[in-house]
Write a protein that binds this DNA or RNA. Structure first.
Length: 420
RNA sequence: GGGGAGGUGGCUGAGUGGCCGAAAGCACCCGCCUGCUAAGCGGGUAGGGGGUGUAAAGCUCCCUCGAGGGUUCGAAUCCCUCCCUUCCCGCCA
């Protein structure tokens, strides 16, 4: 979230950012409630201070009249504090609903049409024959099964079968190996159900509850991304600055209701209720976060390059960026069969927006006050669409799919999917 | 799931109604001492918020001893509920 102090001092900056993001921001309401809260707070504190003083006096004098007066004061203080607390809760709730501001380098725009391609790697491959889609090939090769998944779970679920499942596992291994051994990330295996506080820390709550699966009768939610448990790993902590940046990589399934995506990407292995993802997370300082964000994006891109997949890196415009993000890049891999780019990674930096919610701080030096950390994350990469791009890019005219060179060590001798 | 013990600052840990936001130790910082290092000596070091400052500093007040509620003039300390840790038993991958 944005600090109350920041909103007090820069209401116009906050209003403008919200407007360009297409998000509502209760700035005026906050300023109003803030006034109210401070008045109550001040009054409550005055009574309390007086009460504390007189209470000490009573300890000495044991004066019964004073005791009666103190009893009344205690009542007054209690009601006034309760009033102040109620207003503060209202204020806190409003603060959680204010979108983040964005970095000055973010392109201004309303829709995805105004996103900007900042990099392109490789070119669209010319296969020399009409490319087929991954779902067509996947079902023909028996490595993807959507029909049976519908039977046991519903739409937007899938089975990967045989070499399909193996391909997914190989990709996870490759990504984890590269990120831990070469990019310096520490692997985390994280809880995949988290509580409301954690969800609030990463800003999935309160605004986006309808995107999440919730466990009945418990304060537990299925994670929509490992970003949630991993970013919250250091919640309520004060870190030493010389330990930063902290770099974590975590493989996990991710669950999303895909509310609001009805009718979109219903065909194929693209937009699933459950999917695997290798997620990169950094916790860093204010000074280094933009730089670390670029490096994290490069780490994700490295995987695409090793896989030999053509992709574009896009800078998201304000309107397409989202509530919590300070700056965001999407990596879109080319899928020849679908004849379109698929978003396989989304890399974001949050400034101190998440850290403030999760209360993650660091101390820059002895005797200096703690500061809120900056958090960064990005997929490195999301599995289904990466698999799609691989299948469609490495397909052959005979309907079989070649295993990319880097994956061969992980495929247990399988070099060609479909050869039996 | 049943029963016992417990949750205090960066860490260890004392504190059973006011003198406690908290002894002591460790760690760390500053200074002194020392040829250097170690030791020693002196001082300092929790977080959040309000008010007052142009800002910082400072001053001042309030809150925080797992969370919430209660008793009391007054709660780290007493009572209740919940969460968590740990031990024993039960169950089970």
């Amino acid at each position: 979230m944005l600090s109350l102090e920041f909103i007090r001092k820069n209401p116009d900056v906050v209003r403008r950012a919200a407007e360009l993001k297409g998000e509502p921001a209760p700035v005026d309401e906050i300023l109003e409630v803030d006034q109210k809260w401070r008045a109550h707070q001040h009054k409550a504190e005055e009574i309390k201070a007086q009460q504390n003083d007189l209470s000490k006096e009573f300890a000495r004098t044991r004066d019964e009249a004073l005791k009666t007066r103190l009893r009344e004061m205690a009542e007054t203080a209690k009601t006034e504090l309760a009033l102040a607390d109620a207003v503060k809760r209202e204020l806190d709730d409003l603060l959680l609903r204010v979108p983040n501001i964005f970095h000055e380098s973010v392109p201004i725009g309303e829709t995805e049409a105004e996103n900007v391609v900042i990099r392109e790697w490789g070119t669209k491959p010319d296969l020399g024959f009409p490319p087929r889609t991954h779902y067509d090939l996947g079902e023909a090769l028996g490595i993807m099964d959507f029909e049976r998944a519908v039977k046991i779970a519903g739409s937007r679920f899938a089975f990967l079968v045989g070499d399909g499942a193996r391909l997914e596992r190989a990709l996870v291994q490759l990504m984890l190996d590269v990120h831990t051994r070469e990019h310096g990330y520490t692997e985390l295996w994280a809880p995949m159900l988290v509580n409301s506080a954690a969800m609030t820390g990463t800003a999935n709550l309160p605004k986006f509850a309808d995107m999440l699966f919730k466990v009945e009768d418990r304060d537990l939610w299925l994670i929509p991304t490992a970003e949630v448990p991993v970013t919250n790993f250091h919640r309520e902590e004060i870190l030493d600055a010389d330990r930063l940046p902290l770099k974590y990589v975590s493989y996990s399934p991710s669950w999303r209701t895909e509310a609001g995506a009805a009718g979109k990407d219903t065909r194929g292995f693209i937009r699933m209720h459950q999917f695997s993802k290798v997620e990169l997370v950094k916790v860093t300082t204010a000074e280094t976060s933009l730089d670390e964000f670029e490096k994290l994006t490069a780490d994700a891109e490295d995987i695409l390059q090793r896989l030999g997949l053509h992709y574009q890196a896009m800078a998201m415009c304000t309107g397409d960026m989202g509530f919590a993000q300070y700056k965001k890049y999407d990596l879109n891999a080319w899928a020849p069969g679908l004849d379109r780019y698929l978003e396989v990674s989304s890399c974001s930096t949050f400034n101190d927006f998440q850290a403030m919610r999760a209360n993650i701080r660091y101390r820059a030096g002895r005797g200096t006050p703690p500061r809120f950390a900056h958090t960064i994350n990005g997929s490195g990469l999301a599995l289904p669409r990466t698999i799609d791009a691989i299948i469609e890019t490495y397909q052959r005219s005979d309907g079989m799919v070649a295993v990319p060179e880097v994956l061969k060590p992980y495929m247990g001798g399988v070099e060609l999917i479909g050869a039996r």
